[in-house]
C-alpha cells in the first residue's frame, strides 16, 4: 500500500486547504479515498448529511502515486479526524512553498504532510505533520459508496451563495424543517412553517436542466443540514446545481472548473 503526492501550485494548495477546512466544519471524521485519478473526501454518517468531494489529481498534484492492496483493489480508504487535518494544512494557504503528502507508518498509519515553508534565510523551514489515520479494510469499502441515484425528478441551477446565505441566516432558527420545492418554470422555493407564520422565499428565473414531470417537486429536510452546505462557499464554486427526488433526497452539486466537485446529499425527512 503506497500513496504519495506533491503540491506546488499556490492555487491548488489554497483550494486544498479550503476543502479541508470546510470538511472539518461539517464533521469530526471523514473518509479519504484515494484512487488512481482523484482523491475524495467523504463524509458519511447515518445521522448526518453526506458529502462526496472529489479532487482531480491532474489539477492538484504532481508525482501522484497510489498503490492499493492489489491491482484489483487499487484504491486506499482511510478514516481521519478532520480537525487535525485542517489544522495541519493551515499553513498551506499562505506561507508554504510546496507540500508532499504521503502515507507513512510511524508507530501507526499516518498521513504525513511535509511542508516546505518560506523563511527569512536561504534554507526553507520544513514542517512535518503526522495525522494519524485508520485504514479501512477492503471489505468495508462498500459502506462508503456514493448513493446510486439514476435520475432526479428535477435538476436546476441554484441561486447565488450570497442570496442563499442572507435567506438562510434569517430562517434557520425559525423552524427545524425546511421545505424545498421546485417547479419546471425555474422557481425554487424555500419554505418554513411555524405556529405564527409561514414564510416562503421564491427564487425565480433559474435554469431548469432536467425534469421528469411537470408537477412541483418538493422535499422537507433538516434546516441545519441545509444551512451547513453554505460553508462550501469557501471554495468559490463556479456552478451550483440542485437536484431533488420528490420527498426522498436533495442533492446539491458544486463544481469548480471541473477539478473540484462536491456532491452534497441531504435525505428528506417526514414533514
Amino acid at each position: 500500500m503506497k500513496f504519495k503526492c506533491k503540491m506546488n501550485d499556490a492555487g491548488s494548495m489554497r483550494d486544498f486547504t479550503n476543502v479541508a477546512n470546510t470538511v472539518a466544519r461539517m464533521s469530526k471524521q471523514c473518509v479519504l479515498r484515494l484512487t488512481q485519478n482523484s482523491i475524495y473526501f467523504n463524509i458519511a454518517d447515518d445521522s448526518m448529511a453526506m458529502v462526496w468531494t472529489k479532487l482531480d489529481k491532474n489539477h492538484f498534484f504532481v508525482d501522484y502515486l497510489v498503490a492499493g492492496k492489489s491491482v484489483e483493489f487499487n484504491e486506499i480508504y482511510m478514516e481521519l479526524n478532520t480537525g487535525m487535518l485542517a489544522k495541519s494544512v493551515t499553513s498551506l494557504k499562505t506561507v508554504a512553498r510546496s507540500v508532499k503528502i504521503k502515507l507513512t507508518n510511524k508507530q501507526q498509519p499516518c498521513l504525513t504532510f511535509d511542508i516546505e515553508l518560506s523563511s527569512i534565510s536561504a534554507e526553507s523551514r520544513l514542517c512535518i505533520h503526522d495525522v494519524p489515520v485508520t485504514i479501512i479494510p477492503q471489505k468495508k469499502w462498500s459502506e462508503y459508496n456514493e448513493p446510486n441515484i439514476e435520475r432526479y425528478d428535477i435538476s436546476l441551477e441554484m441561486p447565488q451563495f450570497k442570496h442563499l446565505r442572507s435567506v438562510m441566516e434569517r430562517i434557520k432558527s425559525m423552524s427545524p424543517i425546511l421545505i424545498l420545492s421546485a417547479d419546471t418554470n425555474g422557481v425554487l422555493a424555500f419554505k418554513v412553517d411555524t405556529n405564527a407564520a409561514t414564510i416562503t422565499v421564491h427564487f425565480p428565473n433559474l435554469t431548469v436542466l432536467d425534469c421528469t414531470s411537470n408537477n412541483e417537486i418538493s422535499a422537507s429536510v433538516d434546516i441545519k443540514k441545509f444551512h451547513a452546505f453554505l460553508a462550501w462557499e469557501a471554495v468559490h464554486p463556479t456552478a451550483i446545481k440542485c437536484n431533488i427526488l420528490n420527498e426522498t433526497v436533495i442533492n446539491i452539486n458544486l463544481n469548480l472548473e471541473n477539478y473540484l466537485q462536491i456532491k452534497y446529499y441531504i435525505p428528506a425527512i417526514e414533514s
Binding site: K87, C110, R125, C127, I128, H129
Partner: peptide, 8 residues
Amino acid sequence: TRTQLVFG
C-alpha cells in the same frame, strides 16, 4: 497530530 518543524 504530531508535528515537527525544522529550521536552520
